[in-house]
């Protein structure tokens, strides 16, 4: 039952993904030199989030695998962010 048809990613696609990731890293380092106040952290996190999504979707194959994995990953992320949010109910108002 297990041998469902596998999606085989090509070498080229992995290479393109890698270049994208390196470019994003470059942008992330470069943008640090621009003074934006608290926005700097936000931008850094957005870029990191983009990189993470690329890794999840292509390298970790979420884009091609069983959709269940992607749903679970999203769920875990939501739970983590909610825990973070609820924790800051304490710290932002203390």
């Amino acid at each position: 039952m297990s041998q469902e048809k596998q999606h085989i990613s090509s070498y080229t696609s992995h290479f393109v993904v890698l270049i994208t990731l390196i470019i994003l890293t470059g942008i992330s380092v470069a943008v640090t030199r621009v003074e934006m106040g608290p926005l700097n952290t936000l931008v850094a996190m957005i870029i990191a989030g983009a990189k993470a999504s690329v890794v999840l979707a292509w390298f970790m194959h979420l884009k091609f695998d069983n959709k269940l994995f992607a749903i679970f990953t999203a769920l875990v992320l939501v739970i983590f962010l909610l825990v973070l949010y609820v924790t800051f109910f304490d710290y932002s108002y203390r």
């Binding site: 992330s28 640090t32 003074e35 952290t41 996190m45 990191a48 990189k51 993470a52 890794v55 390298f59």
Partner: peptide
């Protein structure tokens, strides 16, 4: 790798 993607800006790129 994923973990490092977040560790890197949070420690090295604080501005």
């Amino acid at each position: 790798d994923l973990i490092w993607i977040f560790l890197f800006p949070l420690f090295y790129l604080i501005h």
